[in-house]
Design a protein around this nucleic acid. Sequence first.
DNA 1: AACCCTCTTGTTAGCGTTCACAGTCTTGCC
DNA 2: GGCAAGACTGTGAACGCTAACAAGAGGGTT
Lengths: 340, 340
Amino acid sequence: MRPRGERRSPVMADVAKAAGVSHQTVSRVLNDHPNVRAETRTRVLAAIDRLGYRRNLVARALVTRHSRTLGVVGFNTTLYGPASTVDGIEQAARAAGYFVSIVSLRTIDTAGMRDAIDYLADQGVDGIVVVAPQRSAARAFESLPRDMPAVAVEGQHVGEVSVVSVDQVGGARLATEHLLNLGHRTVWHVSGPSDWLEAEGRIEGWRAALQAAGRTPPEALAGDWSPHSGYAAGRRLLAMADRVTAVFVANDQMALGVLRALNEEGVKVPEQISIVGFDDIPEAEFFLPPLTTIRQDFAAVGRSSIEVLLRQIETGHECARERLIVPPRFVARASTASPR
Amino acid sequence: MRPRGERRSPVMADVAKAAGVSHQTVSRVLNDHPNVRAETRTRVLAAIDRLGYRRNLVARALVTRHSRTLGVVGFNTTLYGPASTVDGIEQAARAAGYFVSIVSLRTIDTAGMRDAIDYLADQGVDGIVVVAPQRSAARAFESLPRDMPAVAVEGQHVGEVSVVSVDQVGGARLATEHLLNLGHRTVWHVSGPSDWLEAEGRIEGWRAALQAAGRTPPEALAGDWSPHSGYAAGRRLLAMADRVTAVFVANDQMALGVLRALNEEGVKVPEQISIVGFDDIPEAEFFLPPLTTIRQDFAAVGRSSIEVLLRQIETGHECARERLIVPPRFVARASTASPR
DNA sequence: AACCCTCTTGTTAGCGTTCACAGTCTTGCC
DNA sequence: GGCAAGACTGTGAACGCTAACAAGAGGGTT
C-alpha cells in the first residue's frame, strides 16, 4: 500500500500540497483566522480529513511560547480531600482547554516542593497550581520563576501569589457553634497535624467560637488526619469521659477513629458524647451513627483556582493577586444531640 | 540593572557565548556526552549556573520527537481505588523521569474515552496508560493511533494492548473460601455495577469458590460501589436474614453500607452475619467491627504498568504485548466468625 | 485613470534544540 | 619526522509550526 518503510505522519506542508495552498493558509484555517475564503477553508479541511492530519502541538508551543499546559503540585493525592481538589482542578482546566501535568509529592519538605516546581517549569507549563496545605510548602513559592503565573490552593497568603481556599476558620466555627447551641458547656477538639494550615484554621475557628461564648478552650488533642490517630485521641478522651460531652474532630477519618474508640468502651454517640467531623467524605453518611460534619466544595475550589490562574496568564500578570475564600457547609446528621 | 525592557531567559547560544564554546558543546555537556574535556565541561557548567540557564524541553521534544510525557486517562479519580492507581502510576513515571499528563473522565462512554486519548495524542505524549475498568472503555483502544504505545490498567485483554491488573478473581476466591472455611453453608455477594470488569471478576471468583465447594451460588445483589447502594443491599439482605450468615461485598465502601443496615436492625456482625470487603481502604480497619477484606497493591499496579509501557516505548514496539497480574492479599480483621 | 483600502494568499524568517558531518588537535607508534 | 587513530569541538541543517511582512485581486472613490 505504502511506498515502503515507515510512513511518517503528515505535516502541515503535506496538507498544503494536498489542498493546493500554502502551509500558512492551512495554519490560518486551523487557527480560525477570519480572512480565509470559505471555499478554501473547506478544501483545506477536506485535505486534513483525508490525510488524517493532526497538528503538532509541540512545534506550536515552541513558537508561541505557550504550551497550554498547567502544572499541578499535589500532596498525598490518595486522601479524599486532596484527590477531590486535584480532580476539581483537572476538570476546570480541561474545560478551559488546558492540559494538566501533575506531580504528587509523598513527603512535604520545601526542597521536594521546589524540585517539583522546577520540574514543571522546565516542561514549559504556562502556570502552576500548588496545593500547598502546609506551612513548609509555602516557602517553596520563593523559588518560583519570577514570571511564572501561580496560584496556591489551601495555602498561606505569602508574597505575590494568589490564594484560593476553603474558609476553615468559618467551618470550624460552624461546627463548634452547633455543639454549643445544643447546650454543651464546652467542646473538645481533635486537631490535624500542627504544620497544616487547614489544621490551624480549624483550631482557630474552634477557639474563636468558644471564646465568643465565654468559654475557655480546653487543650486540643493532636492527630495526623488518619483514622488511627483519631482512635488514639478517642482513647485519651475516654480517660476523661466524665468531663467531655462534645467533640469537634478536624476530619471525618479521625472522627471514624474516635467513634470506634468510644464504641469499644460502650460510650454512646450521640447520647453520651456528640461528635462533629469535617470534610463530608462519602462514607460519613454511613458511619455509626451517621456523622454530622462540615462539607467542603472541592469542585468550586478547583474551578476558582483555575479561573484565577488563567486570568493571570491571559492578562500577562497585570492583574492584582487575589484571595478567594470558598464557604463550607454544615451538614446535620445523627452524631450530635443535646447533653443529658 | 538590565539594559531595559523584558530580559528573555537565556538560551543555549547565550551559554555558549558566555563559556566561549559552540552551542553544540553546551548541548553535549547537558546530555552527558562522553567526549567533552573536563575543563570545558566545568566552564560550561559555570556559565549555565551564572546565567541561570534552563534548557527548553519543548524545543528538545520537537527535534527528538520524544516529549518524555506519559498520558493517563483515568475515571472517577476521587474514589480511593482509582486515586491510588493513578498515584502509583504517577510515582513510577516520575521515578523513571517522565512527566504525567492526566485526563480524568466523569462519564465512561467510548466517545469520551476516545476524545481523551486524542487529546493526549495531540499533546505529543510518548505513551498512554488507560485505567479502563469498564467494558465500554475497552473499545476506545481501537481508536489509538497505530504507533502509540499503550497499556491498559484493570482492563480487558483486547486487541494489541498490554494489560496490567489485580487478580480480581483470585481475590474474590480468597474472600469466599475464607468464609466457607469458617463453616458457612453458603456466601452471598453484593456486587459492583455490571459493566465494570472488576465487578465481573469478583463475581466470577465468588461463584468459582462456591462451586468448587459444591454449593450453588445464590443470586448476587447488585450495587454501584457507593456506601448508599451497600446500604440498600443490606436492607434486602435483612429481609432474608434467617438464611444469610456470610456476605462477600465487592468493595469496602459498600460493606460500610451493609454494616450500617445490619446495625440498624440490631443484627450483630460477625456473630450473626460475617462480612468480607474488598480494597482495604484506610477506613476499613476502623469500621464497627474492623473489616476483614482483600487488599489491592495499587502501587505495584502503577509500577508494573509504567514498566510495561516504557519497555514498549524504548524498544519501539518490538516487544510482545503482555498480561501482568498483581496478586491481592487477604487481610483478616474482626468482621467474620464461624456461624453459630 | 490613479488611488487607497480590504480581503485573501504566499514567502521568509525564526522559535531553541539535536543530529550529521566536518574539522582540528592530541597522542602514540613506526 | 610522518601518519593514523582517537579525542574534542564547530558548522549547518533540520524538527513543524506561527509571526511578520509582502503581494495580488477586487472594489469603491476621487
